[in-house]
Design a protein around this nucleic acid. Structure first.
Lengths: 343, 343
DNA sequence: ACTATCTACTAGATCGTTCTAGTCGAAGAG
DNA sequence: CTCTTCGACTAGAACGATCTAGTAGATAGT
């Protein structure tokens, strides 16, 4: 740029601008290209110069410009993660995904969707960043979301069901989970079992289906309370139950948040758990372990996260490989919310 | 680029590459610069062409390349948000911040730090993206983190205390919160009040200080249980209490997560809440409303989030304005974990 | 001594935008 | 009629990296 000696001293501190590789190169007495090589850890530089470059960068407070890198790079190591911040099951998996990504020196950018799921903005963000791949945490992943993303890059959906070919799925066996819970309740002697259902997403639909199927198989009367998969939904569901002449002896909720809300509202109304009514949840979020000590269906978030990342890496390496559906069996974890039926 | 008629038909679909503004321009029959004007919503294009450009973009599936925009743009509208995904208080504020950002058509990128707080990677990310400003959610924001970020852009710290000049602070009055809680317990007749303390961060230090101060003022014997500000920390704290000859009549925890963990462990041990011991938390996270129904010190997350965003916008508009510390008074919310002392 | 191979390094093109400095034609002012 | 102003539009430089295609010098094989 400025090649005259007099300005050189000022040149590395262009007013108000962050230093660039050019500045580092000048400081270290090498070319810009070599600085790039050093920062990418690619072969082609001696140990001595690597050290010199890093020191120079440190000295002038250089930080790599991610935008410039992303623009030029032919293959990116950024993957997008769509999730709901307020969903503990999501944050649990997300934290593990981030760790898994770091191990593979991948970057994760988070596309947060609100409770009211503005999935479009997450899609726009990921497409805008040209992420190499995407991991979508259910619940209620829209087919259009998947379609828009998967046309240009591999996608793996965690916790939701079918989205046509080319989409990797990693999830727990929701049907099995529900059956395990119901078998367990039956073993305790329960025959009047209500189910708190959520209208959101395929996983929730399958849980509901599995409940109906099992109840039919056992010639029991299905008792579905339609509500939401949140604490507030659980409270609403409890309200519905309390309005009846008599309560079921047990309830199975579509997830832990709903179970926790319901249990809380029931307790408020003077209904004792598990003496008067038993409650089972689904997911085994961290909060299920405290306070209420919820008996629930456990999903292995470590396994889910690690597998999701592995699936994505496989597809990134070999984009034409077949998409896989990996389904893990959930397990029951007994805590304190189930007892024998009251009547 | 290719100016010969024969390849034109193929040119807009360069194999494997996402369409660019150039492609949109060709499709709409205008220049690349005009497409840019349209996408930025800047004046300089007629309504008719705006429509034509948008339709062309839609038709060929164009999505703006964020990296290229960020690289070229002189002033960015991206702000960084550092937070802990697994901290419900953070996710609560984060969700509101995201909404507040959207209203102002700002973008937020999340730098997630794990429980074990790897704040450096969040700093690297934000500096790498050249964010215009940063919002840092405590707890335990390191001074070095703030220093590195604030040298190049305005920073507002939410929930933590002093970081020297130039740093905006938005927080609740922790000292007042603790005093309100203790006054309330005293009003109920409690004189043996233990405090579960966390070593992380300035806010926690101030809460602890305020407890010691208040106890001294009231000539009561301070009883600090050193633990962590998580559910597991609460369990550990309860264990410590249960190991004693007799329990205090009330406990105040450094935050709700800790209170919930403690309450859970106490209940497991057969200690009734609030009959045998009273429990007060701090923060009023959503989970405090369910199950345990924790009496706690409420922080207004709506207000905190909105104010943080406002402070940041002010500083972005006028970087030389004085940094402000905005401190809100917290309030007590009575639920079900406090009663008169057992003895 | 001649060629081949390897390591260390560099110049210049390139990624897809935004920004700067215009051009062109129509409308309005005198 | 000329001069200015304005709106609509465009060409080309710039942003800060990575990538391609090299060069120079050392080492080794024949």
């Amino acid at each position: 740029m400025s090649e005259n000696g007099t300005t050189t001293a000022l040149a590395n501190g262009r007013a108000g601008r962050a230093p660039t590789m050019e500045d580092v190169a000048r400081e270290a007495g090498v070319s810009r290209a070599l600085v790039s090589i050093v920062f990418r850890g690619k072969p082609g530089a001696s140990e001595a110069t690597r050290k010199r470059v890093h020191e120079a960068a440190q000295r002038i407070g250089y930080e790599l410009n991610v935008a410039a890198r992303m623009l030029r790079e032919t293959e990116t190591n950024v993957v997008g993660l769509m999730m709901t911040l307020k969903n503990p099951f999501h944050t649990d998996i997300a934290e593990k995904l981030i760790a898994a990504a770091k191990e593979r020196s991948m970057e994760i950018i988070i596309g947060a969707v609100g409770q009211d799921s503005a999935q479009d903005s997450a899609v726009t963000m990921m497409r805008g960043f040209r992420v190499a791949g995407a991991i979508l945490l259910g619940t209620d992943v829209q087919a259009s979301t998947v379609a828009q993303l998967s046309s240009d890059r591999p996608c793996v959906v965690v916790g939701e069901h079918d989205f046509g070919q080319g989409i990797d799925i990693v999830r727990s066996d929701d049907r099995l989970g529900i059956r395990i819970a119901l078998d367990y309740l039956l073993g305790k002697g329960h025959t009047e079992i209500a189910y708190l259902s959520s209208p959101h997403g395929q996983a929730m639909a399958e849980r509901r289906e599995a409940y109906l199927e099992w109840m039919a198989e056992h010639s029991m009367e299905a008792d579905v309370v339609e509500t939401e998969d949140t604490e507030a939904g659980g409270v609403a569901g409890a309200g519905r139950l309390l309005g009846r002449k008599n309560l079921p002896t047990a309830t199975l909720a579509c997830n832990d948040r709903c179970a926790i809300g319901m249990a809380s509202a029931l307790t408020d109304a003077g209904v004792r758990i598990p003496e008067d009514i038993s409650v089972v949840g689904f997911d085994d979020i961290e909060q299920a372990r405290y306070g209420i000590k919820l008996t629930t269906i456990h999903q292995d978030t470590d396994l889910l996260a690690e597998t999701a990342m592995k699936s994505l890496m496989t597809r990134l390496r070999d984009p034409d490989s077949d998409a896989t559906s990996i389904i893990f069996p959930p397990t029951l974890v007994e805590r304190a919310t189930v007892g024998p039926p009251a009547r």
